[in-house]
Design a binder for these strands. Structure first.
Lengths: 334, 334
DNA sequence: CTGAAAGCGCTTACAG
DNA sequence: CTGAAAGCGCTTACAG
């Protein structure tokens, strides 16, 4: 009934605990016959190495840390992301340790505390920005991590991101191709990594199509549903007939704004968002948006992290393309 | 630079490591002067006990396990819930270990594996149902846990739930009071703990108001947005002018169904959901729904678990009332 | 290829 | 009230 230990296995198999350890850890120099004796015993006993005991001499914990984001940043579907991370980590024998800064603690202190407690082998980060202090901190201390977010500022960093510029290029091209004359952009204030990239994509598509950028409508606002609503009047007054938004939150706001003015989203004004949140399917007509390939992001992140942990090269930063999901908010013919 | 150990502290403070350990663990029999010497050293060194080293002799890990739900069950806003769990756990020095069954592994095996690896001190469960095998399994093995979900089937179990019957009572009363004549119920097939409770609430409110239950419209369906849409015609044909739904997903479906028939939700038919998902605020008019007090649920769960871990009585099962959030889908006067 | 032994950083009786 | 010592369950050189 009690949890079997390495001793139990060694007794049953008639070998030393060192040999059991060698088998468990896949060391090469073990006879086939010894190996199978040990494996039988392990199987019979249902043995699994105790994590704490393993961690102590080896200095590896089998744990990967993830800081619970504040919930303020809505640009990641936490649910799906975490799910994927947990599953991919599980596939290579790692579990996920969740933590959050305690009241009065800075973000960095939270990471440091986890580290000092001997908590994890490495971290998965998400939502990083320019000059991210956590990235800097971990890099300095040579703590393994992989970031969801373009960390190309730092040569050594392992990162994966979804290509926001490509996303807004796709969105804007789609709007232009469907015959829209005056395609506006609603973004966040300049200076955020994610926001600036997405703006760049809109710009590129507009220029490529020969549109006049200088006289196009560009609104830079904080993220928010109500903010989206409040922008609608202004967009209509400027003669805008399509708007590419930096986020679904803003896009859904504009859709609601249109509806409150008794206009139909997709007719008077086409709207595209970014993130493909579930609410986008639940409004009428559906919101066209950019879907982030979360499963790929997670598997690439975990892959990079596990390579670092094995002392290998994590590989280059990776930019994954988002996928345009077309729904009613852009598909009603002009 | 290297992580300080208990030895470093003991040297700096001029005491034995046993004394440092006693101070760290708040043992009573330590002189004030000794204590403060040790505390100074701890502070100076930034010492934190290594979790693995602590876990090994003490048999406690400082970790609390949570199984990543499948994502199939939409009745819990995972994001908020986990957030709250992590924060409340952090406040009492516990961190959260996330795990998921690997492919081919049953749920029970996943729990068992975490346990065998010496993974956690206890579990937080969510989304439990009648005769839940995991609850039974943990109870048999006397593994500490606290469940989000009514586990009153099992006398010893620690649980917290949101009162679904009360929720649907509130919803149905609200519909009746606002003058609706024919209040339908859309629920899941009988036999789920959560679904049955919510049905009971509708029933009670209807009977209390003297409504004829036998001739009322009751639809039992699987959860789903499209399913909600497909039900709308039938509801209208039955002369239903209000519908209390077991979930926001179904409620949002009905709202979309109404809109596709060019009807206005809240006018021709009032709609109430359950969960208060964010999409409910983003549709026009907003969806009236029942908000679950996640922060309270989390704090009560963690509180119960920590009491069990300290060998105390966890306290009785707790039923928390949801809060009716009234929006456009029911507030347009008849 | 296998095993005896040291050691990882703690906690916990037990002496003193 | 404090400290020396054993031990938690592993891994890792190192002999043999």
């Amino acid at each position: 009934m009690a949890r079997p230990t390495i001793k139990d296995v060694s007794k049953l198999a008639g070998v030393s605990i060192a040999t059991v350890s060698n088998v468990v850890n896949g060391h090469p120099n073990v006879t086939d016959s010894t190996r199978s004796k040990v494996e039988d015993a392990i199987h019979k006993l249902g043995y699994q190495a105790n994590r704490a005991a393993r961690s102590l001499p080896a200095g590896q914990t089998g744990l990967l840390g993830y800081r619970m984001p504040d919930g303020k940043r809505l640009n990641v579907s936490l649910d799906t992301f975490l799910h994927q991370i947990v599953e991919h980590a599980g596939a290579i024998g790692l579990e996920v340790l969740l933590f959050a800064p305690r009241p009065g603690q800075t973000e960095q202190e939270a990471y440091s505390e986890v580290l000092i407690r001997g908590g994890v082998d490495g971290f998965v980060l998400s939502g990083i920005d320019y000059h991210d202090p956590v990235v800097k901190y971990l890099l300095e201390r040579k703590v393994p991590f992989a970031a969801f977010g373009r960390a190309d500022e730092y040569p050594g960093a392992a990162w994966v991101d979804v290509d926001g510029a490509e996303g807004l290029r796709l969105a804007t091209e789609h709007l232009i191709e469907s015959g829209r004359k005056n395609v506006a952009f609603i973004g966040w204030p300049a200076g955020s990594l994610t926001g600036d990239e997405r703006y760049r994509g809109w710009q590129q598509a507009m220029l490529a199509a020969g549109r006049d950028i200088d006289n196009a409508t560009v609104l830079r606002v904080l993220d928010g549903y109500e903010i989206g609503i409040s922008l609608t009047r202004q967009l209509l007054d400027s003669g805008v007939d399509a708007v590419a938004c930096v986020s679904d939150t803003l896009a859904l706001g504009v859709m609601a704004g249109l509806r409150r003015l008794d206009l139909v989203p997709g007719e008077e004004m086409a709207v595209v968002g970014f993130d493909n949140v579930s609410a986008g399917e639940l409004v009428e007509p559906g919101l066209t948006s950019l879907d982030q390939p979360m499963a790929d992001v997670a598997s690439e992140l975990v892959g990079r992290l596990s390579r670092i942990l094995r002392g290998e090269n994590p590989g280059q930063g990776l930019l994954l393309p988002p996928r345009l999901v077309v729904r009613g908010s852009t598909s009603i013919p002009v």
